[in-house]
Design a protein around this nucleic acid. Structure first.
Lengths: 196, 196
DNA sequence: CCTACCGATCGGTAGG
DNA sequence: CCTACCGATCGGTAGG
């Protein structure tokens, strides 16, 4: 994904597309809607993007990359699993709240990509989830976490994290860090070994 | 919602539509796709339903009613908030897993309904969430739960419950009751007053 | 429940 | 970046 910096016009279209896709979903959003919201004719979009799907791909892979980039440095730190997991939660919520509209599209519309991008995307997503799973596993092995079923905890954790995109507002009463702290508190109550 | 029993053919079409909407989303699903999957011509669907949206409305409101019906009797029982909340979780997961495809459509595509059904639906959803919120509130007032922020707990609870529709499989290794028990365990660790 | 068909709109292209 | 336009397909209807 050697993503060069996008031109300002291209980025402007991308932002309008993100808003549109978030509101109506990708299939129900038309190139004419998008053009109108940007202030162009529909045909003019095609001098910046080769297809409607390319716009969706950009949104989805940019988000996927952002999640990876945010979590990667944490994995390399010398921390115990609990500290790592807390930082990962912060990183995840950080990325998600920095662009909640793109996060929403990323979560809801990725399945409208066609092959081979669809499989690439799913592989990325699985790899990301595996990174979080491995932290949980480490915590269990070290005795820091007590988890009956790792897969189940992973799913519930991701649910709580990702649902945030549906209700987070930039002008809401919680900052991303506050949300992360609250989620961490709930999650650690659920998995921490009280004797550790 | 005085829903008469649906004819078998109508129900058959509804089931195919549910599957289709779940796989591709409502806007990307066409009446021709639906007709083909049922074994009819597109025009013939209209002798059972007056529009594409009517099908979506039926799926969404049937699910909304199912959730209400499942939770209503629990509210009237003489139980403490913890017991009530556990039963509500079971009821919610029960409805959701009984028809995970319809649940998926219900969760992802309700926003494609047009007014006035859209507002009716949102009102129902808000009322349902308020019922769960009130149980949490009762628990807090009675000292059974310790909750820093009720709204936040409600959102996280709903996230964990509803995410289930995304991964639940009828032939999976967890029964609906097992899932409910696991979720309850996690949630109660997060909110229960240890001294209560 | 089908055949035949409609007006509208879709994503996208040609050519400048 | 626009005008002009395309083939395809959409939700839905008439009439039987």
């Amino acid at each position: 994904m050697p993503e060069a910096q996008l031109g300002t016009k291209k980025l402007e279209i991308l932002n309008h597309a993100t808003e549109l896709f978030m509101l109506n979903g990708y299939p129900a959003s038309t190139m004419r809607d998008l053009a109108r919201s940007v202030g162009l004719e529909a045909a003019s979009i095609y001098s910046h993007f080769s297809s409607k799907e390319e716009i969706l791909q950009l949104i989805c892979f940019r988000m996927a990359n952002a999640f990876f980039e945010a979590v990667k440095p944490i994995q390399e730190l010398e921390l115990n699993p609990e500290e790592k997991l807390e930082l990962v939660i912060q990183a995840h919520i950080g990325v998600l709240t920095r662009d909640p509209k793109a996060s929403s599209v990323f979560q809801n519309d990725w399945n409208h990509m066609s092959e081979p991008r669809l499989s690439e995307f799913k592989a990325l997503r699985d790899e990301y989830e595996e990174q979080i799973a491995s932290i949980i596993r480490q915590g269990v092995n070290k005795g820091e976490f007590i988890v009956e079923d790792e897969k189940f905890v992973l799913l519930t954790l991701l649910a709580a994290l990702n649902w945030t995109a549906k209700w987070y507002r930039q002008d809401g009463k919680f900052s991303p860090l506050q949300i992360s702290k609250k989620l961490s508190a709930i999650i650690f109550k659920g998995i921490k070994n009280p004797k550790s």
